[in-house]
Computed example of a mutant assay.
Amino acid sequence: MAEHPHAALVRKGYEAFTRGDLDTLRGLIAKDATHHVPGSHPLSGDYKGQDAIIDMYQRLAVETDGSMRLERLTIAVDGRGHAVGMCRVRAERKGRRLDDTGCIVFRIVGDKVTDLDECVEDIDKSNEFWAD
C-alpha cells in the first residue's frame, strides 16, 4: 500500500528536523504557518510565520546543545488535511534530561503545512525541562 501524501510530507519533515536540514523544513511549511508550543516555559507560545518557526527550531538545538533527538513512532492521517505525528523526544539541558512522548497535529493545505499544534504527554515535565 502506498504511503498517503500527508504522511509522506510529515515523515519528510521529521527526517529533515532530525538532520537539522532547515532548508527542507522551510520548503514544507507555508510562509504564514503557525506552530503552537504548549506549556508555561520560555519556549511555549505561538510561532507565526515560516521564519519564526525555523528560528524556534534553531533555538531548540542551541538550548539543548544539539542533544535533542526525535524518534518518530507513527503517523496517522484523516485524508482531509490533518496528520498526527507521534514521537519520543529525548534531550539534555542545564543538567536536566527530557524523555517524553508527544505529537504534533499538522494541518496541511496542498503540499504545505499550515498549522502545527504540539502536544506532550507530561506537560509538567516539559515545563520543568524548558524552564530557565
Rank of each mutant, 00 (worst) to 15 (best):
E63I: 00
L70G: 05
A33G: 04
D115K: 11
K31S: 13
G79R: 08
R93I: 07
R59I: 00
A30P: 04
I123Q: 14
G13F: 01
D55Q: 12
C103L: 15
K125S: 12
A52I: 01
E128T: 10
P5A: 04
H35T: 05
A52V: 03
P38C: 13
R97V: 10
T24Q: 08
R80H: 12
K125R: 14
G79M: 08
Y14E: 12
L28E: 08
I54F: 05
G49W: 09
T114R: 06
A52W: 02
K31H: 10
K112F: 01
H82E: 14
R107C: 06
H4V: 03
I53E: 08
E121D: 14
I54T: 04
R72G: 05
E15P: 00
V84P: 03
D124K: 10
G102W: 09
E118L: 10
P5F: 06
V105R: 13
R93Q: 12
E118R: 06
F17N: 03
R26W: 02
V113S: 07
H35P: 01
P5T: 07
D115V: 01
D51T: 05
D117K: 06
T101F: 11
G79K: 08
D111E: 15
K94E: 12
V62S: 10
A7D: 09
H41M: 13
G81C: 06
A91I: 04
A83D: 08
I29D: 11
